[in-house]
């Protein structure tokens, strides 16, 4: 059952992407796309899904939507305004530093989501990740603190709350 669910998850994701990508309006596209997605999901499932997925997928997707709404609108806008101000400012008020940021999510997808969110907001880039000690090393353009925990508060605490709910 769990394995079938894994296939179904991959299939659903692939097919959804296919439908969006082709803007499919014809039966031809929809049918062939379903076939193609089925083949693709059978082929790549062992690569994509590592553990047995749980049934809470619907709930996950809801979280994902909320997360991205928050993520896009608030964090990005703030960071983008900041970087624009820096770039066009007369003198650069930057304080670059590489700080250590611990994280607590367990799965690799959760970790990637957090790291991706950190990197995607201008001002912070994950330079190195240490999965054993659960540490990111983040290059921070406006470093306010060098201690790991305070840096975590500043950079990734918000992202991680959502990531933990989605991927555990």
């Amino acid at each position: 059952m769990g394995r079938l669910l894994g296939y179904l998850t991959v299939f659903a994701m692939t097919y959804a992407f296919y439908v969006v990508f082709t803007g499919a309006t014809s039966v031809f596209s929809l049918v062939l796309g379903a076939l193609a997605s089925a083949v693709v999901s059978v082929v790549v499932k062992p690569l994509v899904v590592s553990g047995e997925p749980r049934v809470s997928d619907i709930a996950r997707l809801a979280y994902l939507a909320v997360y991205y709404l928050y993520y896009m609108v608030v964090a990005e806008v703030r960071a983008h305004v900041a970087i624009a101000r820096t770039v066009f400012g007369r003198r650069m008020d930057i304080s670059p530093a590489i700080v250590e940021v611990p994280y607590h999510v367990k799965t690799s997808y959760g970790m990637t989501l957090v790291a991706g969110s950190i990197t995607n907001t201008p001002g912070t880039v994950v330079v190195q990740v240490d999965p054993e000690r659960r540490r990111f090393y983040v290059h921070w353009l406006y470093a306010k603190a060098f201690e790991p925990d305070r840096a975590r508060e500043e950079i990734s605490a918000e992202f991680e709350r959502f990531a933990q709910r989605i991927f555990g």
Binding site: P96, E100, Q128, Y137, F146, P148
Partner: peptide
């Protein structure tokens, strides 16, 4: 320029 390098 870099103020602090945790990696190093």
């Amino acid at each position: 320029p870099i103020l602090y390098d945790a990696l190093e």
